[in-house]
Design a protein around this nucleic acid. Structure first.
Lengths: 212, 212
DNA sequence: GCTTGAATTGAACGCTCGTTCACTTAACGT
DNA sequence: ACGTTAAGTGAACGAGCGTTCAATTCAAGC
């Protein structure tokens, strides 16, 4: 059977993506066979090759698409660079948390399956990742220059911050004792503390007498 | 050839462990074949089965040994529970950083290959991991009760803290611009900020005039 | 109603996988 | 000197792998 109503190529392609994302996130790229993936889609294994030339191409498509979408979404949500760095950092953290709580499998793949990419594909994804990391490092640097944040290495802080935030979707599940609003609040305050925002405006300059 | 001087069973067993740790950390459990592993050890594939009954048993041995050693080492390095929570947290962070900078492959395995364990083995490792996490959560809880840390969920904070610290050995390499002392300092101050220690003793009570 | 061509299939290819087993080697205790 | 036994080998097993391909099905265009 072919081209039956409501099941065109584009739809099948997206079904493959979704099944691959789910399966690979659960058991890993190497542990998912093309036959198993095809079964999940409801199709013969050979059919997959109409949409992706190799198994590797499926993984690369997932990672590449995820990083592209992430960067595009941040480009749209990003506050102006002229704003106060603490606010910019806050906006970033909220964006990152919300975006990835909606896409835990993609986040998982992006970090666990990098090593399953061949050299050329790896370079592409790593560059995209670096450009995302740079966005945060720039905010941190601006905050340090502005005396909003504790002096520190912006790139190291950016990495630490991302690592911390990425840990959230690993354990968070909807329907637990904490909902998304709760965990967002908790992580936002940890982000601020990690960067060193806390001490300045209220506690140090307005709650204390400044002797000069 | 067998039992030639300087190559007894225990030594081979340790060589298998070391090779497996290195290979699996680099390319993943599923991607390492018994033949490839044996080649790395300098032995035929069949010889591996004198030391481990299955491939899965090798992975489990690595993860189990790592967690056992980690918990034992922390048990020996842990400061008394009667000390000030910020100092206890500091001691924990330094311990965690140093321990894992010496064992990046084991840390990597512990987080990336959990999903390659079968159900029974997974439970064992997860329990060990939880008991480690509990150690930090307890320090955080003590610090909150003592007004040393910002009020927060100790278990969530413990997870965020571990996630942040575990990100370090992923990128750190000896011989870069920052040495171990540098990164330890950076991460220690981020840990303190993350927990909410910063504001209290020096900056708020001694560097400011206290109006009463 | 016939042709076209996208969508899909089942069988097959060569290869590698984890694991087993009968067999060999050589250092040790006696 | 000899039997014991730990240590290791090479060939083999059945299964599954990623991938290819000739054949088939069926909606759409003329």
């Amino acid at each position: 059977m072919a081209r039956r109503t409501g099941s065109d190529g584009a739809r099948t392609r997206e079904a493959i993506r979704a099944a691959a994302r789910r399966l690979i996130a659960r058991v890993g790229y190497e542990a998912v066979s093309m036959r198993r993936l095809a079964e999940e889609v409801g199709v013969g294994a050979a059919a997959l090759y109409r949409y992706f030339p190799t198994k590797q191409a499926i993984l690369f498509d997932l990672l590449r698409t995820h990083m592209d979408d992430l960067l595009t979404a941040w480009g749209a949500a990003r506050p102006p660079e002229t704003g106060p760095p603490p606010d910019r950092l806050d906006a970033f953290a909220r964006f990152h948390i919300r975006y990835h709580l909606d896409r835990p499998d993609s986040l998982f793949l992006s970090y666990m399956e990098l090593r399953s990419l061949d050299a050329a594909n790896f370079t592409v994804i790593e560059d995209l990742r670096r450009s995302y990391e740079y966005e945060i490092a720039e905010i941190i640097a601006a905050g340090i220059a502005n005396d909003d944040f504790r002096p520190q290495d912006p790139r190291v802080t950016a990495r630490a911050l991302i690592a911390m935030l990425n840990g959230l979707p690993v354990w968070y599940r909807d329907g637990g004792t904490l909902d998304r609003t709760d965990v967002e609040k908790l992580y936002i305050s940890m982000v601020a503390g990690l960067a060193g925002t806390a001490a300045k405006p209220e506690h140090q300059e307005t709650a204390c007498f400044t002797p000069a």
